[in-house]
Every structure is written in C-alpha cells, then in structure tokens.
C-alpha cells in the first residue's frame, strides 16, 4: 500500500520536475504533447484526467520547464568548460558563497524565531494579537524594494537610532530575515493549532517537564512544518534581490549576492556568466525543495503507515 502511494507520488513529481528521464510512452500517447500517459493510479476518475493533466503540463511547460531549459542551454553556450569558467570566477564564487551563507543563517534564525512566533500566536493571548498576526504577512506582501527602503531608513547611513548596517553582511541578514519572516510562522501555525493538547497533558502526567514535553513530544510533531517552512525561506533567500539591493551595498566579495552578480553581468553584456550562475542558484533551490519533499514524505509515511 505504502509503496504504491509513494510510486504515484514520485510519478507526480517527475511530471512537475524538469530534467528527469521521460517515462516510457504508451502506444496511444500522441507525439505533440510531451506528457506521457496518465500515471498508474486507479483511484481518480478517468474522464477529467487527460484534459487536466494536459492543461497542467502545458501551463508548467510554458511557465517553468521551457524557460528553465532555455536558460540551461544558454549557460552551456560555450560547453561545459565555458560554464565551469563562468561559475568558478572568483567574484562569482564569492557571490554564491555569500548568498548561501547568509541564506543558511537566515533559514536557521527563521526556524527558531518562526516557531516561537507561531507558538506565541497560537498559545498565548495578549491585546493586539490579531494585529500582530496580520503584520506577519506584511514583509511578504510588501514590494521588496520598499522593504529595502524601509530597512535603510532605520538602519541606513542616517539611522535615527545610530545602528548602521548599510553595506554590511548583517545588513543582508536583516533584509533577508525581513522578507522571509512569514514562511516558518505560516507553516507551523496551522499544525500547532491542530496539536492535541491532551498529548502534552499525558507527558506531564508521566513526569515530563515543560521543556522535555516540548522537545520530545511537541517538536517532533511540528518538525515537518518547521523544516518545510525553513526550506522555503532558504529557497526564497538565495534568490532575493529587491530587498538587498539598497541596504546590501553590492560590494563584490563582501556583500554582493548572486542575484546582484547576475544583474551586473547582464549589464556588462555577459549573458553566459549570468546564465551559468543562475543555473547554480536554480540547482541549489531544486535540491533544497527535493530534500524537503523527502523529509516530508518520510515523516508522513511514519505516521500513516499501514492505515
């Protein structure tokens, strides 16, 4: 039972994913549509399937798969050697390193703070809770360039509180933490609302302190949501441009992030360099999301095994 479900799920992924090997074509599949015949799932109704799968395939192709493929092709315009040369240029490497490092720190900070914020919003009552709850989404909803200006006005050269983060790595951290704030909060919150409080009472009755209960009983329940929120925050952070463009300072090898490097390469007419670094960012994002799915799948399986 479990294996079939997994199979189906993995099948779905390969339909969405880009460069996975194509599934064997069934004789009836028409050549015009690149999508293979429907996955071997007997639970769905047969009527909507060809139309639904076709539409989703077309939509994803036009929006995601084809542009990504085109980008990959561009990056390989001068062969693997050209690609490698573009990626291993010291400034390019430095920008990638800064990006991944800052994004990783932001992701970890988010994991802790996001879980804490979600906890307070779900478990505690305080005046203005609804306003705080609404505020969480604001950094995400705001145009990122506005976020940059907002942060610059408080932490920039004319800081009213004399904290100067302009053109520093901490400045990058603050900017990225700002725009990725909602991810962990919004993925943990619904799970926490659904958590069975009696389980915590059971742990207490067995002698577990509040911290032990949180660590051994609550956290394992929240872990999939925390991990998925953290991963999304990380993926968002490595590609962030608007919010760091003003406060980051764009100093090569120090605060220049990969997206700024790409922009710079485009401006000096080096599309291959831009494409190559883009492909690396793409690969990092893809691997992050893929690992997340594995994690989510595993914990899901453990709980729903054999039902």
């Amino acid at each position: 039972m479990t294996t079939t479900t997994n199979h189906a799920r993995r099948g779905d992924t390969s339909t969405e994913g880009s460069s996975l090997p194509p599934r064997p074509h069934l004789p009836l599949g028409d050549g015009a549509d690149s999508l293979p015949a429907a996955p071997p799932s007997s639970r769905r109704t047969g009527v909507a399937r060809p139309l639904g799968v076709g539409l989703v395939g077309l939509w994803l192709s036009v929006l995601v798969l084809l542009p990504l493929a085109a980008l990959t092709v561009t990056s390989l315009g001068e062969g693997i050697g050209g690609f490698w040369h573009a990626v291993s240029a010291p400034v390019a490497l430095a920008s990638l390193r800064v990006t991944v490092l800052v994004a990783a720190i932001v992701a970890v900070v988010n994991a802790v703070m996001g879980t804490l914020i979600a906890w307070v919003l779900v478990r505690d009552d305080f005046p203005g809770k609804r306003i705080v709850n609404a505020l969480i989404d604001l950094p995400f909803a705001l145009p990122t360039i506005v976020a940059s200006i907002v942060l610059l006005s408080l932490y920039g050269p004319n800081s009213p509180i004399h904290i100067h983060l302009n053109a520093t790595q901490p400045g990058l951290l603050v900017a990225l933490a700002f725009v990725t704030l909602p991810f962990v909060v919004r993925s943990v919150q619904p799970v926490l609302i659904e958590v069975d409080r009696e389980v915590e009472e059971a742990a207490a009755s067995l002698g577990a302190s509040n911290w032990t209960t949180f660590r051994r009983v609550v956290l394992p329940t929240l872990a999939p949501a925390v991990i998925s929120g953290t991963g999304l925050a990380f993926a968002r952070a490595i590609g962030e441009y608007g919010s760091v463009v003003l406060i980051g300072g764009n100093i090569p090898r120090k605060t220049q992030v990969a997206s700024q490097y790409i922009q710079q390469q485009i401006e000096i007419d080096r599309p291959l360099n831009a494409a190559a670094v883009s492909v690396v960012l793409l690969a990092i994002a893809f691997v992050t999301l893929f690992v997340l799915r594995l994690f989510a799948g595993r914990s899901l399986r453990r709980e729903e095994d054999a039902q």
């Binding site: 009696e198 059971a202 742990a203 067995l206 577990a208 051994r216 009983v217 394992p220």
Partner: peptide, 29 residues
C-alpha cells in the same frame, strides 16, 4: 504540579505519542 503527583492518567482519545513506537510510548515515563 501534575508531574510530581505520582499519578497515571488515561485520556478518552488515547493521547498517544504518534511519532513513537508502542515500546517508546510505554517507556516514556
């Protein structure tokens, strides 16, 4: 506090630790 009362409590809806095996559930205390 309930932790220090020397009680065992059983809930209507089991309150099982879902991410632990039967053995780990029973061994928890």
């Amino acid at each position: 506090a309930p932790q220090k009362r020397g009680i065992g409590f059983v809930f209507q809806h089991y309150a099982a630790f879902k991410h632990m095996t039967v053995r780990d559930n029973v061994a928890f205390g």
